[in-house]
Amino acid sequence: MATTSAPAGAKRVPGRAAWSRPRGGAVGVGVVRYLVLIAFLVVFLLPFLWIWSSAFKTSIEIARDPFALPSALRWENLQRAWTVGRFDRYIWNSVIYCTAIVAGVVALSCLAGYALALLPLPRRNAILVLFLLGLMVPFQSVMIPLYYLLRDIHLLETYWAFIVPGIALRLPFGIFLMRGFFRGLPPELADAARLDGANEWAVFRQVMLPLATPGLATLVVFQFMFTWNQFLMPLVFVQRDELRPVSLGTMFFFGRYTADRGMIAAGVTIAMLPVVLLYLVLQRRFIEGITAGALKT
């Protein structure tokens, strides 16, 4: 497909575009523009600020005046959510799941995407159609039999219950993404390496893969976000609290402490924090990755 080339923020554009704007009513337009932008800024940020400030409040304070600042910085809500609320465990599990699934998806998608883009392969189209099917059908299509399959091969009580299908079901996306990137590379580079006596693995690993780093980064970001927030798959496949990722653990935490609102706010804050912080630090990577992931498959 035709793709847009430059993701947002790829180029530094000066504060004002070089091309001029019409003058008439520019000031009025500018004011309206900022009013709208600021209104949306409030809509998008207020829920965050409210929850974060509530994490320092008692349940009574939350009910009394939701807009007030906390009367004191009470860290005990966060502390209790972390230990008693088991967020230490949930976060650690999510790290394990994300590491394993992202690594698996990236490795297998790079290999297969590369082969489907650049290596001679019989019945390439049939294979592509098969993977395309996986891109089009939702998780529900396989959810029920997959549960019984995982049960029968005794994976349900391990981390694998989420890792294995977590990788398998995301391969179509990864493969199409990586195939797109590899197809954008000049095949002459590979041919030149082959003439120099490199074997196919060396060609892939030393020549072509380094050139696909932007694609790799996109896949990592996309897959990380997807896995960190995935809900239905662990809901069905992960039955033990010690194995729950944070997305799912948050729900059960909420059920256990519904009446303790300060604790809930603290738990939700902890659940948000790692990925929000990561986003704030790596903002451009996130946005570029998400944009490219959307536009290139």
């Binding site: 998008f44 940020l45 960190w228 997305s247 948000m272 990561l278 986003y279 704030l280 903002q283």
Partner: peptide, 14 residues
């Protein structure tokens, strides 16, 4: 831009 995109990183349970 930072603010408008921020909810996108949250899980649906949150």
């Amino acid at each position: 831009r930072t603010a408008f995109f921020m909810p996108q990183v949250l899980s649906s349970v949150v």
